Simulated assay, not measured.
Amino acid sequence: MHGHITQDNLVAVPAAAVWEAYSGLQLGKLVDKLLPDVIGRVEVVEGDGGVGTLVKLTFPPGSPGSGYMIEKFIKNDDVARVKETELVEGGYRDLGFDFYRIRLEIIEKDSESSIIRSSVEYEIDDKLAELASHVNTKPLEIMAETIGKHLSEKKTAQTQ
């Protein structure tokens, strides 16, 4: 079974500023700072933020499942403002998913706002299809909203 879900979040921040936060390793640092009790802690296992980088996300206490996941950066396109990661260990892999990819795309709406498009693509054996109902974009939505708000407040503080 193959599935795909997408969520768009509008933020009042220019696309270039959002991409600066989402590209490379900056996103993990912001998650650590702003969302450790919601999404978890991020640590770099290997790499410098480019393609091939491995990061480990340790979920907050009380989270269901194995408690962690390791993702590999497979795309980090500064021109298209697209970042993709694939799950290589833990998380949904431990539940039986064969493939789990997250795609983050920053789309310019106008000079002062942008859209953070978060997508999840997955594959799971048809015998385990009921587990697909667990897949959602909620953590990515929370991350987009929180980081968008943080960047907007930072922009406002700089212009005052």
Rank of each mutant, 00 (worst) to 15 (best):
G96R: 05
E84V: 09
Y22F: 15
M1D: 06
F97G: 00
A15S: 15
E20N: 15
I107R: 07
G96C: 09
T85R: 02
G52D: 08
L30N: 03
L128T: 05
A157K: 14
D37E: 13
R41F: 07
M1F: 08
E141T: 15
G96H: 06
E105K: 15
D77Q: 10
D32N: 15
I147A: 00
K56F: 04
G148Q: 02
Q158E: 13
I147D: 00
L25E: 00
T85M: 15
V11P: 00
N76V: 11
Y122Q: 03
S118F: 01
P60S: 05
P14L: 07
T53G: 04
S119R: 06
N9R: 14
D78W: 02
E46G: 05
I39S: 01
V18D: 03
P61Q: 12
L87W: 01
E105Q: 15
I124P: 00
I39F: 08
D48G: 13
L10F: 12
A80M: 12
E121W: 02
L57P: 00
V120Q: 07
I106T: 15
V38E: 15
E130G: 05
A157E: 14
A132P: 03
H4V: 10
N9D: 11
N9I: 15
D125H: 02
E130C: 06
F73M: 10
Q26I: 04
G65R: 02
S114R: 00
E141M: 11
L34F: 07
S63W: 04
H134K: 12
D98H: 11
V55L: 11
R41P: 00
S152L: 07
E153G: 08
V51K: 12
T53W: 00
G24C: 08
L131Q: 06
W19D: 03
Q7V: 07
V13F: 03
V45Y: 11
P14S: 11
G40Q: 03
V51Y: 09
E145P: 00
V51G: 09
M1W: 02
F59Q: 10
G67V: 08
E112D: 14
G148W: 01
A80E: 14
I115G: 00
I74M: 09
P60L: 05
T58R: 04
H134A: 11
E89F: 04
V79L: 14
S114Y: 02
L87R: 01
T137N: 11
E43M: 09
K83P: 01
K155S: 14
L140M: 12
I106R: 00
A129Y: 07
L128H: 09
A80P: 01
V42Y: 04
E46R: 12
H150S: 10
V11D: 00
F99Y: 15
I124H: 01
T85P: 01
Y122K: 03
I106C: 12
H4R: 11
E130L: 10
G67L: 09
R93I: 14
S133D: 13
L30S: 04
G91Y: 02
T156Y: 13
G90Y: 04
D77K: 09
L35G: 05
V42M: 10
M1H: 09
P36T: 05
E105W: 05
G24K: 07
V44C: 07
G62W: 06
S152E: 14
T137C: 13
K72V: 09
T85A: 15
